[in-house]
Nucleic acid binder design. Structure first.
Lengths: 159, 159
DNA sequence: CATAATCATTACGAGGCAGAATCGTTCTAC
DNA sequence: GTAGAACGATTCTGCCTCGTAATGATTATG
């Protein structure tokens, strides 16, 4: 009673499509930022530091949902490039307050343009109005799922 | 002239939201299928075999976009559980034709229900009509990006 | 003043994945 | 008909990522 060998019997649901397109978007974004010698997690870290400068590494780690030990290598990579600085807090010398350098801010600006191109690449099939409706729906889902705005959940465990 | 420390200056675009929600959806799905002792790639393989039974491993590998050597372990895991069988092709004994067992089909049925629950979980913020519009837009994007329907691009290292 | 807690870092180990090498089988050329 | 190339599946090897556990330095507590 096997029907004709139709590919993939149940049509994929919205969640599957979200996962598939999200994976595609993430991979494409990784390619783009590779041109700046950056990995996606480093971009997220840059954005997090820009949003709330002076935070301790532990605070940032908690915000991003990553173990602190992972953050060390991330910060190292950005500090080696001169995009980020660790400032020792004089009142509590355990803490490393994270700040962007001027070069870091410049890189962030370049990333913003790059993000726009990325958006146009991914959403090329949609006109401006449709894109706005898509964004609105996605934001509603993100809020419903208690996602921290601007934070990619791929930091916690699998991406 | 730094404005108030607003979190994440540029509002996230649709591509970022897609990536973030896709990551979330993938992680949640992984949790769900873990209850059946399955990993997401194995689920994709099950679905691929169900869609076109009797294919060689190499053909399936090409469809999914994964190196053949990776498929071996994947098939092994499913074969150990008795969900999949390798049938030697008598006319060409190099080939291993992949087929689902009855247990495999039963598991696939369970996965279908599980997928519906997953869909409802992720899209809980949207009513039925909105969900349909979201699906339609996502499908258009997927077609525009030349994604193989039903195949998760996460198999491909480069996509 | 001593002990516990906190932050960053390092050390270690597990797991996953891609690419090269291997083994058996089939096709092609002569 | 046989030798050698081509092909499919598998194994092997090395790399890379990540999470957890220990380490060291500093500060809070009682």
């Amino acid at each position: 009673m096997a029907a004709s060998p139709q590919p993939f019997e149940p049509p994929p649901g919205a969640a599957f499509l979200l996962s598939a397109l999200g994976s595609l978007a993430a991979a494409r974004f990784a390619e783009r930022v590779a041109a700046l010698d950056l990995a996606p997690p480093q971009v997220g870290l840059l954005r997090a530091i820009a949003a709330t400068p002076g935070q301790s590494q532990q605070a940032v780690a908690q915000l991003l949902g990553t173990p602190p030990s992972r953050l060390v290598a991330l910060v190292d990579g950005l500090a080696d490039r001169g995009l980020v600085e660790r400032h020792r807090n004089p009142t509590d010398r355990r803490l490393h307050a994270l700040h962007l350098t001027d070069a870091g801010r410049a890189t962030l600006g370049r990333l913003e343009n790059l993000g726009q191109e990325h958006d146009n690449d991914i959403c090329g099939a949609l006109d401006t109005e449709e894109r706005a409706r898509l964004r609105a729906m996605l934001i509603r889902i993100a809020e419903d799922q208690n996602l921290t705005p601007g934070v990619h959940p791929g930091y916690r465990r699998d991406c």
